[in-house]
Structure formats: structure tokens, C-alpha cells
Computed example of a mutant assay.
Amino acid sequence: MSRILLAGDHFVRNDLLADRLRAAVPAGSALDVRTLELAWPLVPFGPVAEVDEASDVEDELVALVGDAEVIVTQMAPVTERVLAAAPSLRLVVCTRGGPVNVNVDACTERGVLVCNTPGRNAVAAAEHALTLILSTVRAIPRIHGTVAAGEWRSDLYAYDECGLELGGSTVGLVGYGAIGRRVARMLLAFDAQVLVADPFVADGSLPDGVALVELDELLARSDVVSLHARLTPDTAGMIDAAALAAMRPGGYLVNSARGGLVDYDALAAALASGHLAGAGFDVFPAEPPPADWPLLGSDRVVMTPHLAGATRQTAHRAADLGAAAAAAFLAGDRPPGLVNPAVLD
């Protein structure tokens, strides 16, 4: 009997996880499945104990985990305290791209494998990034607001009010992982010139029409800069006042990766001065942003509330990948998405 705790939420739901798990394990496998429903996204995530971007259910998890061998979750906080309450635990499957809600070091010390599901939201996030780019350079929300208010602003056809076309423009992508690669392919279909800055990409490995450059060159040459990098100590605050000043006058910045990549105070100043024509972002330095955050009132900014990955296909894909990792482990195989292989070594 394999004992499994599913800690789903209102996006990657427990019924999806249970269905995919039962389909992934061999017929007749004995499973003892218990569930915990998390309130996310109806209640925002945040830091919990020593982990981040988690639902605040550490007490509930400690009470329920018991003799579970496997936890499958997107948002549950797998902390030192939870691990101490789970002596039988052998695998944590985090159904997201990065297991920031899991204390991976503590799991490794206890011999607990941790898997994630990279690429689960790559399609959704890439399409959302392109939507933000188009909405930003053509000021779609601002123009929509004028029509919705009963105005007919034909004066917005004036040269100084017009946006730009992606065809023939240069778009710089900071980060070229699963999402960045998809964005690049879509931009090439628009006949854009695509630049990439990513220290983990080998020169000569990019497709025709995509050039690998250093970040300074990308900022100086791009009409639009779109961020797709992970937030690490090396990338935190990488788009600061100096980086924004290095961007082309009249350029646009789009961030659908992580809020911590950008100095938003410096961005507000760059927009107010007219150095940048506009910005679009799905992520914020604090989520949700405070009511007095200056960029909330800017008509040069397009904002969405961290929804880039919010499609039903993403939820299904997360459940499929999470179930595949759990099923492989239960079969005695190396699970896909393993982030701490030292446990096996």
C-alpha cells in the first residue's frame, strides 16, 4: 500500500491529481490517497516559515502528513517542521517550474527526493508574454478605456501617439528557457529581429533570426525588452536604473518572469521622464502591490495580476507531469524532474 498525500488547490485540483495518478500507476496498484485542499489562488500565497510562494497551511500539513511516503502539491509549504512530522516521506512532487515552496536542502539531508514539473506552463506563459508585448506597444488598454468611456479619439492616430509594429522591430529576450524559446518562435513569425541574452546558452545553438548577445548590447539595440529569467541572487535587480538608462529612448519593457528582476522605482522614473514609452508586467515587487504604488495610476503601463500561466491546459499538464513523477518513483524508477539527484547518489 503506497501512502500519498495530495495537497491540491483551486487551480491544480485534487480531483485532477487523483485522476492522473490513478491513470499513471499500473492497474491494481494499492494506493492510500489522502487530500488537503489549499485556498490558493482565492487566498494569495506568500512566505511560510523558511519557504516562499506557499499557502499558509503548515499546521494543517503537519497534522495530516503522518506516514505519507509521497506528497504531490503546487503550493503546500514543505518546511523543516513538516518534514519532521513525516518520517516515512520519500518523495515530494512540486507541480510547478521551481520548488520554491519546498525546503530542498532539508529534504536532501533527510533523503527525500524532490521533483518539479518544468515547462508545465511554458505555452501559457509565452502566449501571455506576447499578449503583454502587443498590448503595451499598441497601448490597447488605454485606447480601450477611451472607447468604453464614450470617446472617439481619432487624434490617437497622430504620429506622436502611435505605437510600433513588431515586424521589423528588434525584441530582446533576457532568458532563453522553455518560455523564452517559445516567445522567440512567435516573434519570428511577426518578422521581428530577436536578440537573446542568457549566460547558459551556447553560441551557435540558436535558430536563424535569433542572435545571442550580451545584456548591455541587447538593452542598447532593442525596441522592446522582455524578461524571461529566473530570479536568483545573480539576477535580482538586474534591470536597475543603469540598465533602464541603457535602453533605447522610446523603448518598452515587459516583465512576465519575476518582480524581483526589476527596480520598479527606477522604472517609474524612466516612464515619467519619457525615456521609456511604456511597460507591461504580470509580476510585481510585492503581490498584490500596495494601493499607493505609483505605477498603478500610469496610463503607460499594462498590468495583469500574475496570471501568465493561468490556463486549464497548464493545470492538466501539471497534474500529468506530477502523476508521472510519482508513478515512476512508486515503480522504483528515477522520477522525471528530479532537482536533488544527490539523494539517489
Rank of each mutant, 00 (worst) to 15 (best):
L188N: 07
V213M: 12
G309Y: 10
V171S: 01
L36Y: 06
V114M: 07
A324R: 00
L219C: 01
R317Y: 08
A291H: 09
V93D: 00
F11W: 08
V62M: 14
L21V: 03
T35Q: 15
R248Q: 13
L212G: 05
L89G: 04
H275S: 14
G163R: 06
D203R: 14
D105F: 07
E217N: 09
A129S: 13
D52F: 09
V43S: 14
L173R: 00
L321V: 02
D345E: 14
V196I: 08
S2A: 15
V339Y: 00
I140P: 02
A27K: 11
A324G: 09
E109Q: 09
A63R: 13
Y264M: 11
V343Q: 08
Y159D: 15
T235K: 08
V100A: 15
I239V: 10
A84G: 14
A86M: 07
L113H: 05
A23Y: 05
F11N: 01
L295W: 00
L253S: 04
R110L: 08
L42F: 10
A319H: 00
L307D: 15
A54P: 06
P141R: 04
D32C: 15
V224G: 00
D208N: 10
R34S: 10
A266R: 12
L321W: 03
L271R: 03
D19I: 10
I71D: 00
R334T: 14
V225D: 02
L113D: 00
A18T: 06
P99R: 04
G250T: 09
L164I: 12
A84C: 12
L61K: 01
L231E: 03
D67A: 15
D320K: 13
V302I: 05
L16W: 09
L64V: 15
E165H: 13
Y252R: 03
L295K: 03
D9W: 01
P47H: 08
F284Y: 14
H306P: 05
D292E: 14
P47T: 10
E214C: 10
G309A: 12
G250S: 12
L330Y: 02
V78G: 04
L5W: 01
D299M: 15
P341K: 07
R312W: 15
G309D: 02
L344K: 03
A318W: 00
S205I: 12
L130Y: 07
H228D: 05
R22I: 06
L173I: 07
G209H: 11
P336D: 08
V12T: 14
P87W: 06
A197T: 04
I71T: 05
G167Y: 08
G163L: 13
S2G: 13
E287F: 06
T73E: 02
R258Q: 09
G337P: 07
T108D: 06
C107N: 01
A23L: 15
E151I: 12
D320C: 13
G204K: 13
A318E: 01
A86I: 06
P44D: 05
A220D: 01
V210M: 06
G46H: 04
A331H: 02
A325W: 00
A241T: 09
A342P: 11
G297E: 11
A277G: 14
D160V: 00
R182Q: 12
V48G: 01
L113P: 03
D9C: 06
L164F: 07
G332A: 08
M1L: 15
A270D: 08
